[in-house]
Design a protein around this nucleic acid. Structure first.
Lengths: 310, 310
DNA sequence: CAGACTTCATGCGTAAAACGCATGAACCTG
DNA sequence: CAGGTTCATGCGTTTTACGCATGAAGTCTG
């Protein structure tokens, strides 16, 4: 016989930890430790261990391991909605409390990930000179923010009217260009569209229609546009292009450095303007923030095409 | 200027950790890092740091530090009900999933803390001989269990009819005796009640009426019964009694070892039976568990006064 | 059917988080 | 004013979480 006893009233041994809950919810929703790992930014090993420690802690199997797959057990199926809701509620509560003003000199910016990494963040040095006392906190988003509950001060997204969140400035049209590694282009010279169509066209998973739109504006049959490797972010597309794997159709601001450095060349002499410009959106409450006003003044001045909406 | 950026979509930096949430809720409810530490079984230092890291993470002050005291801020006041509810919901969800059968050979017992520590756990060696293949998991409780949602298999509490949870056996009446350190009693001899009343009477915070009942049954004026230090648990009361700080009125089973070892003496020749006996309560589903049946058979046989209710 | 690839679990070692000890500053009380 | 309290923090230790590498088991393909 063995016995364990836990006589402390609080700090219950059965309360899951945050990493355990997150691992469980992602693994349950994807049916895969590997995919959960990718989603959470850890290794598959970390997911496997978190699931094991959660099951040990609760004393119940949450998954059946069937032929190298994770299948939810009855207990796991019952726990999943509870756990998912708890994580969502916790994030919402945290966001709500964060909106209690925080630090007056911190500007909280949400932006598209690649836009942030490749355009905004490299330019923040300029904003530092413009507003030396302001701290910037940049987070990623793919979706418009609900400023009623989200504490962040502004978001930079691609969007069309009507702009959620109440107020918006157009920052820039999205001007897309075709680039490639110099070795892929004979002599590094731009090609005609018909010639472009014969090369591998690198695909951006969240923008599946880009090459379609490109070739339609050239009056060409788009039937071959899907030939080429597919990636999830423009950053990955650019890495593939630099590696000579094909042509990339990407927003011009993202490739300025690579073009200047000669790592990439323009593969076409024309550009395409998409129908969804980059927009700065913000709640009315941000107008009261000196840090926000400084940022808005700076970015509207810095971008030639930027203009406040009436 | 400084800027931080967090471009990973998941594993949000603003999601509080479990230690942070628990520290916050306890500190908010007790208005004290020191009392929160005691409640959570960590040091005051750990609480202070957890609060600081939570406030840094959320970017907002949850407390005002006013003259060495913690006072909830507006943000903290808003966050507290959310955080408390989340922790309670998480525990409930965990308990619910734990009731999906777990291990068939584990018997999950909830018991009063001092009863568990001083009576039940020392006897579990006897149960080991009676049922060698069973693992016992003992946790503390002060309140009756709701067996609809609680996965535990039985609870041992003091209770009067009707017994929540459906089924119950009387284990023993609560027989209370007065004990003291030998040095407090001249020659270690029992005293009359009138003489007892002149000594410090150690108080048990959760049983404020014990000395009142004791002296009323002796026909004495109970006006002086509150004189003596107060403690939260019988274990603490006994420690104080052993230290010679006064008389302790405690359940007889708790002092058997101290009496046998001479660390304490009976200070009165009579005992008092309280109106709430020790009861074993359990849900109908436990009847199907061999481990439960073995335990029930053992404890009913082991205690002379134990009897199943009709 | 063999080889290449996938998944999940785990030994080992490292990094990060959580914590305790001790101390100090600020405050309160007798 | 001395002795006590609280909360914050420097420093070091313990514990947790994780990554790397590997193996077992399974799937897919030529």
């Amino acid at each position: 016989m063995r016995f364990t006893h836990e006589v402390c009233m609080t700090r219950r041994a059965y309360t899951p930890t945050m990493p355990e809950l997150e691992a469980f919810v992602q693994a349950a929703q994807t049916a895969s430790a590997t995919r959960a790992a990718a989603a959470l930014g850890v290794t598959q090993s970390a997911i496997s261990r978190a699931l094991s420690s959660l099951e040990a802690r609760l004393g119940v199997a949450l998954f059946h391991r069937m032929r190298q797959r994770l299948v939810l057990s009855d207990a796991g199926r019952a726990f999943l909605p509870e756990a998912a809701r708890l994580l969502a509620d916790l994030d919402r509560a945290a966001l709500t409390v964060m909106s209690f003003g925080g630090h007056r000199d911190v500007l909280r910016i949400a932006a598209l990930p690649t836009f942030a990494a490749m355009w905004l963040i490299p330019r923040l040095g300029g904003f530092a000179g413009h507003a030396p006392g302001v701290t910037v906190d940049v987070t990623a988003t793919l979706a418009p923010l609900d400023f009623e509950t989200d504490p962040r001060d502004l978001a930079i997204l691609r969007a069309k009217p009507p702009y959620r969140g109440g107020e918006a400035d157009i920052l820039a049209d999205e001007r897309l260009v075709v680039v490639a590694a110099p070795a892929l282009l004979s002599g590094g010279r731009a090609l005609e569209d018909a010639a472009l169509a014969r090369l591998p066209l690198l695909q951006q998973a969240t923008r599946p229609n880009l090459w379609l739109d490109w070739f339609l504006t050239a009056g060409l049959d788009p039937i071959t546009i899907l030939r080429g490797a597919r990636f999830e972010q423009f950053g990955m597309v650019l890495a593939a292009a630099r590696a000579g794997l094909g042509l990339a159709l990407v927003p011009e601001p993202f490739v300025a450095e690579d073009l200047a450095a000669g790592r990439l060349c323009l593969a076409s002499s024309r550009a395409m303007i998409s129908d969804t410009p980059y927009v700065l959106t913000y709640p009315a409450r941000s107008r009261d923030l000196p840090a926000f006003r400084a940022f808005r003044d700076w970015i509207l001045a810095d971008l030639p095409g930027a203009r406040p909406l009436p």
